[in-house]
């Protein structure tokens, strides 16, 4: 097996309303990261997914307080619902005071369209700040949603149109299957879109197929820990037939390129 160390573009801290999670506090996350050689990570608040709008600033602040002692290891992505409050002013505050490394959007979980002036505004603001926006295409496999919380995936046409309207903004898309990524790519003129790996579970040699479809420079390592077993992703790289240089790009280098562009 190929030995690798990782920068993870998609880890969480907090609670999920429908499962009793393990390792979902700081100590647990560090344990998992060490177990699979993850050196640093973009971290988001799991509480924010099912949080009502009013409480989003609270969970963001809780995330900041939890990770602030580890500014080089845990790089926070704060959840925004651009349609609810003055996003621009709030994001400025997060940049200046809370080590914001990226913005996290859950359009389907927070029930808003990507096609509003407010969402366009946050994309433009992210571009000015050179910080990425992580968009969750889906969180869980629809087959196993909680029966009272069936949230559909984003509509690919809506997503592609939004992305294409913001060619200067860096986006990370999580929760896509390879067929989704392929369909999106067919509609995409945008070059700064990355595909996060943790939901790519199918089919055989899924990593190699994703790289074939979207190109190695667009694939970002991500585990979704502690929601998912991180080994399900690390083993894809460690048993891969891809060249070592490509694996390095996926494991670390593509992530590093994103943080290098950030204006501090």
């Amino acid at each position: 097996m190929t030995k690798l160390t990782y920068f993870d573009s998609n880890i969480f801290i907090g609670n999920w309303p429908f499962h009793q999670l393990r390792y979902n506090n700081l100590e647990g996350i560090f344990h998992l990261m060490e177990r699979v050689n993850i050196e640093k990570a973009f971290i988001s608040s799991l509480d924010s997914v099912f949080c009502i709008d009013r409480d989003i600033p609270d969970v963001n602040h809780k995330l900041f307080k939890t990770v602030k002692e580890y500014p080089e290891k845990l790089l926070p992505f704060y959840t925004i619902n651009p349609n609810v409050f003055n996003s621009r002013e709030y994001v400025e505050m997060l940049v200046n005071n809370c080590n914001l490394h990226g913005i996290r959007l859950y359009p389907t979980y927070h029930d808003y369209s990507l096609h509003t002036t407010e969402v366009d505004g946050i994309a433009e603001h992210a571009s000015e700040l050179n910080v990425p926006i992580f968009i969750t295409f889906r969180f869980e496999d629809e087959r196993v949603h909680h029966p009272v919380a069936k949230v559909p995936p984003l509509i690919i046409e809506e997503l592609s149109k939004f992305l294409n309207n913001h060619p200067e903004t860096t986006f990370i898309i999580g929760g896509m299957r390879i067929t989704d990524a392929e369909e999106l790519l067919n509609q995409l003129t945008h070059q700064k879109v990355f595909f996060e790996l943790s939901f790519v579970q199918t089919p055989f040699r899924s990593l190699e197929l994703l790289v074939e479809k979207v190109g190695v420079d667009r694939v970002l390592f991500g585990t979704g820990l502690p929601y998912w077993y991180p080994e399900c992703t690390t083993l894809k790289l460690e048993t891969s037939i891809l060249p070592y240089d490509d694996l390095q790009k996926i494991a670390k280098d593509n992530f590093q390129k994103i943080i290098d562009q950030r204006v501090r």
Partner: peptide, 17 residues
């Protein structure tokens, strides 16, 4: 469930347990 599912996605659950 290979070839529909990646080996890593399922054996990873056991190895990572």
């Amino acid at each position: 469930d290979c070839i529909g599912v990646d080996f890593a996605s399922t054996i990873g659950k056991i190895i990572g347990s």
